[in-house]
C-alpha cells in the first residue's frame, strides 16, 4: 500500500483530483481567498504530510504535469497575439507605462530587501510577484529565488491587487479605460484581469495584454537591475 503512494499514478491522480475539487469550490463560493491554486497547494501538502510522502517523491511523480508549464507559457504568445490589436495607437505609451511599472516594482522590492537586510535569494523570490505564475516561477528560478514561494506570493499579490487596485486608481483620479485595465493586469495578472473585466470589455482586454507585457518586461528587467545593483 505504501508503495502505491510513491507512484507517478498516485501523484498525478491526487494533483488533478484536488485541483478539480478546488475549482468546483471556488466557482460555487466565489470567494477570492479560496483561490483554487492556494487551496490546492495547501490540501495537497496536507495529504502528503498525512501519508508521510516527502516532496522529492511527489515532485518526481508529478513531473508530467510540471512539464506542461513550459508549453503553456509558450501558448500565452497566442493569447498576446489575439489582444495585440488593442496596442494600436497607444503602443508607445502602453509599452513605456508597463516598462516603468515593472522597473518600479522590481526596484522597490530590492530597496525594501536592502533596508531589512534579507538575502538575495529572498529578493529574487519576491521580484516577479506581479507576473502571471508560470512566467514568475521561471523568472524566480533563473534569478536564484524559490519558485514555489514565488507562486504563492503571486496568488496572494493577485488577490490583494484586485481588491486594492480600484481604490488606488480612484484615489489617483485615473479614469482612462486603457490606463485602468493596464494597471490591473500589470500589478495583479489574471486576478487583476478578472476585476478589470468587471469594469468593462476594454479594461478586460487591455488587462490581458498587460499580463503578457509585464511578464516579458520583468523577465528582461530582473537580471539587469539586480546586476546593476551589485555595484552599490
Amino acid at each position: 500500500m505504501d508503495n502505491l503512494f510513491q507512484t507517478e499514478l498516485f501523484a498525478l491522480t491526487l494533483t488533478v483530483g484536488v485541483y478539480l475539487v478546488s475549482l468546483w469550490t471556488y466557482r460555487k463560493t466565489k470567494k477570492k481567498f479560496l483561490h483554487p491554486l492556494l487551496v490546492s497547494i495547501l490540501v495537497i501538502i496536507a495529504i502528503l504530510n498525512m501519508l508521510h510522502i516527502d516532496y522529492a517523491t511527489y515532485k518526481t511523480g508529478s513531473h508530467l504535469i510540471h512539464f506542461m508549464l513550459g508549453p503553456s507559457v509558450v501558448a500565452l504568445g497566442y493569447i498576446l497575439f489575439e489582444q495585440s490589436r488593442y496596442l494600436k495607437g497607444n503602443i508607445v505609451s502602453i509599452l513605456s507605462s508597463v516598462l516603468v511599472g515593472s522597473i518600479v516594482g522590481i526596484v522597490s522590492i530590492l530597496l525594501v530587501g536592502r533596508v531589512l537586510g534579507v538575502t538575495d535569494v529572498l529578493i529574487a523570490t519576491v521580484q516577479p510577484k506581479s507576473v502571471t505564475t508560470p512566467i514568475a516561477m521561471a523568472i524566480s528560478a533563473k534569478a536564484g529565488g524559490i519558485p514555489a514561494l514565488t507562486a504563492v506570493l503571486v496568488v496572494a499579490v493577485g488577490i490583494f491587487g484586485s481588491i486594492i487596485g480600484p481604490v488606488i486608481l480612484k484615489y489617483l483620479c485615473v479614469e482612462s479605460k486603457i490606463a485602468k485595465g493596464l494597471a490591473m493586469g500589470s500589478a495583479a495578472h489574471g486576478l487583476g484581469t478578472a476585476t478589470a473585466i468587471q469594469m468593462g470589455a476594454i479594461e478586460g482586454a487591455i488587462s490581458g495584454l498587460a499580463i503578457g507585457l509585464m511578464g516579458i518586461m520583468t523577465a528582461i528587467c530582473v537580471p539587469i537591475i539586480n546586476w546593476l545593483f551589485h555595484f552599490f
Binding site: 513605456s96 516594482g105 522597490s108 514561494l149 499579490v157 482612462s176 498587460a210
Partner: peptide
C-alpha cells in the same frame, strides 16, 4: 519582508502604470 515588500511594490505598480498611461496615452 515578504509581506511588506509585496504590499508596497504592488501599490506602487498599480499607481505608476495607471497614472503614467493616463498621462501619456
Amino acid at each position: 519582508f515578504l509581506l511588506l515588500s509585496s504590499l508596497i511594490s504592488t501599490i506602487l505598480v498599480i499607481g505608476m502604470v495607471g497614472w503614467m498611461q493616463q498621462k501619456t496615452g
